[in-house]
């Protein structure tokens, strides 16, 4: 059975590219455009991994991550934070909040795919 991946970003073009990329690798993909929608999709779609943008309307990626990590039932969910703000403090903050990996935009598609696969193989 294919792994399920949730893509969360407010930039439509980024969503398009990520969605295409992940589907091509054979993952089952769902999309959310903001933080609140992301939490709802986690509940309904029950993904194995989520690609989570930080700067989003309504709820930021940090808030979503924090909320998910507070839920013991979701401990298996892997979270990859995506951010355009490459500052070290942002990376540290994301990891401290319980993200499993941190990817800075713009990213290499090959590296991202490799990282996702590696994480799901664990």
């Amino acid at each position: 059975m294919a792994h399920k991946i949730l893509i969360v970003d407010d930039e439509p073009n980024i969503v398009i590219s990520l969605e295409f990329l992940m589907k091509k690798e054979g993952f089952e993909v769902a999309v959310a455009n903001d933080g609140e929608e992301a939490l709802a999709k986690v509940a309904s779609f029950n993904p194995d991994l989520m690609l989570l943008d930080v700067m989003m309307p309504k709820k930021s990626g940090f808030e979503v991550c924090e909320a998910l990590r507070a839920d013991p039932g979701r401990s298996g969910l892997q979270i990859v934070m995506l951010t355009a703000k490459g500052r070290d403090t942002e990376v540290a903050k994301g990891l401290a909040l319980g993200a499993d990996a941190y990817v800075t935009k713009p990213f290499s598609t090959k590296d991202l795919v490799a990282k996702v696969k590696e994480m799901l193989a664990r």
Binding site: I14, L18, K105, T109
Partner: peptide, 13 residues
């Protein structure tokens, strides 16, 4: 970085 992200990802693909 935001537009650059789309450009890079799509052109790589």
């Amino acid at each position: 970085r935001t537009p650059l992200t789309s450009i890079r990802a799509l052109s790589e693909m």
